[in-house]
Structures are given as structure tokens and as C-alpha cells.
Amino acid sequence: MDLIGTLLANWPRLLDGTAMTLKLTVTAALISVVITPLLALGRVHAGPVAGGLLRLYVSFVRGTPLLAQLFLVFYGSGQFRPFFQEWGLWGFIREPFNCCVLVLVMYTTAYQAEILRGGIQAVPRGEVEAAQAVGMTYRQILRRVIFPHAVRFAWPGLGNEMIILVKGSALASVVTVFDLMGRSRQIFLHSFDFAIYIWAAAIYLMITACIVLLWRLIELRLARHMHPSSPLPGASP
């Protein structure tokens, strides 16, 4: 097995696949940043009907394989082709990349919302009452009290979800998206060179290692008021 030779012969395609994996993951992650807080708040505050629907959504996503969800959306949308065409969405849903992002967002927000809900419910009641007492509106309380706490509590769990998202994005290769997994598989089927899988594994591990590192750094920053040794710039002693 010639690791270096394999890399020299295939690095442009590996790089291309890595870029696609990152594109899938980052797009899904950025969209989930907008949706997750709404779902989490919904889980905390929604009435019986909306709350029930949200619980059903979360239970469905967590109870079914990601691959089945992907096939349901990617192949299943074909059954409603006239409907999608009428709404002008057929061009969007037919594209494998869009389908993958859609399914990854559905998948990750269901898990993330439960984690963030835990964070929201862990915010001390007294702090919310104090914010109400000084006359903050609900939006202000959310932005200044609830979310800063909740995100800090949920941060490690959300980091796990990011890693699961990277790993889940590899399924895109099954619906003809040439991500890192898809490219490696393509190269293997042409050359039967096992070394390509080793390189793919190394790149996936590097991506997850970067996420772990990034998450630790942001975690330290989110909790900077908890470390008295590093005072905020401009803070009075």
C-alpha cells in the first residue's frame, strides 16, 4: 500500500470532496442556528397542539435512520412532482445537494432543539424574575438573560451534534453528491486502492478534531466571566 503515491495521484479530487463535505456541513449548521432556537422555544412554551406536533417531529427524526429520511425526501419528492412544479420548487428539490442540506437540517435541529431546551430550562428562575423586575421586555430577557445562559449550558452537547453532522454528511454520497466519502468511493472503485480510504479517514478525523478545538475555544470565551484571572477589558477592578 503506497500512501504517499495515492495522495499525490488523487489530491485534487480529495480536496474537492473535502470542500463539498465542508460545504454541506457548514450550510446545514448555519441554517440550524436560525431554526434551533425557534424550535427550542416552541418546545418550552408551545400549547398542547403545537407542542404535540413538535414532540412528534422530534420523535420521528430521532426514531428513524438518517438514510431513510434522506431517501424519503430525495426519492419521495418525485411522487409529488406536479405539486412541486406548480409551486416552482421542483428545481430546488431535484438537486441532490439541496436535498441533503434539507435533510441534515431537519435531522440536526431535532436533536439540537432538545439540547437547547435543556439549556433554557436550566436557566435559574430567579434571573428571569430579576430581569422582569427591572422592566425588561420578553425579547430583551431572551437576548440578554435566557439565551446567553442556555447556549453556554448547551454548548458541549451542540458540539457533539456538529460532529454527528459531519459524519452524517457522508450519507450524501449515496445520493450522488461527491463529498469526501463519494470521491473516495469513486477513486476506490476505479483503482481498488485501499490507501484512499485511509486518507479519507484521516481527513474526517482532522475535520472533527478542528471542530473539537474550535468548540473548546468558544466555550472558554462563552464562560470568560467565570474566570476571574482574565478580567474583561475595561472592567473596573
Partner: peptide, 11 residues
């Protein structure tokens, strides 16, 4: 734990 399950499967 860091590798996608599908990559492990193909490996």
C-alpha cells in the same frame, strides 16, 4: 467514534 459509519462499513 470520529469516522462516519459508512466509511467504516466500506473499509
Amino acid at each position: 467514534r470520529g469516522l462516519p459509519e459508512i466509511l467504516t462499513l466500506f473499509m
